[in-house]
Design a protein around this nucleic acid. Structure first.
Lengths: 205, 205
DNA sequence: AATGAACTTGACTGAATGGTCAGGCCTGCT
DNA sequence: AGCAGGCCTGACCATTCAGTCAAGTTCATT
């Protein structure tokens, strides 16, 4: 069983580790940094977790569920455009609320997903393929303008996570302003137009 | 002056270092890895470069110019939509041709741009601000539908670099298919629609 | 062929870092 | 209060890694 102290310290460690891993990557992070950030001694860290690796694994494990939930929430019976817009909004909100998690994930993928390829090529792949089929179904039923479902999903990921992952760059370019300023309105417009079939004009014909 | 051998070995080292740094990040990369990849001994690496840091600096330095060139190439006198589409296409092509450079850059920004904040907050910032003004000028002149110039630029960066930076994930999700398959057509459509003003329909009024 | 400069390397050093361990300190329970 | 188990730590170890160096080899030039 887990005691009160265990709960508190595990939480502290994971929070500190998220801070450090997301900012430095796995190899760049050190147990000493995490220990300082957590306000614990290094041996005490290793009392609660077997190794640096296992702290990282715990973080990734916790991340996976939260990461794919919004994609699951897409309702095949709902209005196609509304469902996709809602998914995009949800992802953008997560980029704002959990930027460290986003960067942890980005670090992992950038390095070739060494500790996540299993999850990606099984669970995530199955889910994405399912959602791809949902979107294809919408298109086939004439409820959505023809679109490549994979690239639609990738574009939502790219555009929303960019605000968390490239936060440092955006801040430097915009005098420290919150990177998400104006992002929602912009993405709203972007996806609204992307999902709206363009009327054929005489000029094109 | 630089000899034939110097030229060859410096090139080998930088190429090997790009391979390793882009895949492992600065701290994750080791001089031994780079030495093996370059087919040289570690002390020999340090005969050509002062330190690990200076190899990295050389790579970033070389990257900067190539990185901002396309943005410079946007012509204020050209057709707004054509110029922006051309910029997007150029960036996408770079993601395909220089994915390692893109990941090197992504690694750097993810870690908070510790070695690039100077460049970003001066040169790049000035250039981006200039291009923002160009786009605002186009909008003011009625040559382009109203749009937030910053987010337009960010969206081009996000969408194109995603294919290089998240290459591993996309490959795992699409059975190893080239991530760029279909990307150009998709982005073409996306930005075409984004930059095309939507006609007002009766349903909205 | 001779010579000096450019190039190369095995063997090394010191610092950083993940992890161990013996022993001490709390905390909750009786 | 006493005590058993959970909690914590200083000191330590082994490994990794950036960087050094003295000594050798190759190259261009004459």
């Amino acid at each position: 069983m887990t005691t009160r102290i265990q709960k508190r310290n595990r939480r502290r460690i994971l929070d500190a580790a998220l801070e450090v891993f997301s900012a430095q990557g796995f190899r760049g992070a050190t147990l000493d940094q995490i220990a300082v950030e957590a306000g614990l001694s290094k041996p005490n860290l290793l009392y609660y977790f077997d190794s640096k690796e296992s702290i990282h694994a715990a973080l990734l494990g916790a991340l996976l569920a939260t990461w794919i939930d919004p994609l699951k929430a897409i309702d095949p019976a709902g209005d196609p455009r509304a469902e996709i817009m809602s998914y995009m909004r949800h992802k953008l909100q997560m980029a704002g609320e959990f930027p460290r998690e986003s960067r942890l994930f980005a670090n992992e993928i950038l390095q070739g997903a060494p500790r996540m390829s299993g999850f990606i090529s099984t669970d995530l792949k199955a889910l994405v393929e399912d959602r791809v089929r949902v979107i294809q179904g919408w298109v086939a039923a004439g409820r959505l303008a023809p679109i490549d479902p994979y690239h639609l999903i990738f574009s939502i990921w790219a555009l929303t996570q960019h605000y968390a992952d490239f936060d440092a760059q955006i801040r430097l370019l915009r005098d420290g302003a919150d990177p998400l300023d104006g992002a929602e309105a912009f993405l709203e417009m972007l996806f609204e137009r992307l999902l709206t079939p363009v009327p054929v004009t005489q000029a094109d014909g």
